[in-house]
């Protein structure tokens, strides 16, 4: 029977894959950190463009709200996935910094969505500059991590 060794090999692979709390090596961790920072920065930029277009009167119906919701949920999905993973050994402080930044970005995205949902037009300008700021901070944080290649 070939089935048994195959099943055993499969079981080993599956179990190995389940070991999520194993600390990743430094390079992989930096890569995934840069990745999540880029992803969230993308969502922030998307939300910012949406606000800009809403102010310019370029969006029909509630398209702006839907776009802001999409950006928010995409960012929170990426953030959640990242935070559940174990940081590389000795990089706990860096991890905390990144986590804080991600949370901050998430908060601004939520504010933008709320503003779009309630039509609080007077807040748009301030939100746009907050989004710009946090976007730049995300980019700045990602920059040193990008050296890992990828």
């Amino acid at each position: 029977m070939h089935a048994r060794p195959l099943a055993a090999a499969l079981a080993v692979l599956v179990l190995a894959g389940c070991g999520t709390s194993t600390p990743p090596d430094e390079q992989a961790w930096e890569k995934s950190s840069a990745q999540v920072l880029d992803d969230v920065a993308g969502s922030v930029a998307s939300s910012r463009i949406t606000l800009h277009e809403e102010r310019a009167g370029h969006l029909v119906g509630r398209a702006g709200l839907v776009m802001a919701q999409d950006a928010e949920s995409s960012a929170s999905g990426a953030t959640q996935g990242y935070l559940h993973r174990q940081p590389a050994p000795g990089r706990a402080d860096d991890f905390r910094e990144i986590a804080e930044l991600l949370h901050e970005a998430g908060a601004v995205l939520v504010d933008a969505r709320i503003a779009l949902a309630t039509g609080a037009e007077d807040e748009y300008a301030a939100l746009q500059s907050r989004l710009l700021e946090v976007g730049e901070a995300l980019d700045a944080a990602a920059e040193p991590l990008r050296g890992a290649g990828g």
Binding site: A41, G42, A45, S46, R48, I49, V66, M67, D70, D139
Partner: peptide, 13 residues
């Protein structure tokens, strides 16, 4: 702007 598309809204943006 560094936006990577992951929703249909962004396609239309």
């Amino acid at each position: 702007a560094g936006v990577t598309v992951d929703s249909l809204g962004q396609v239309a943006l």
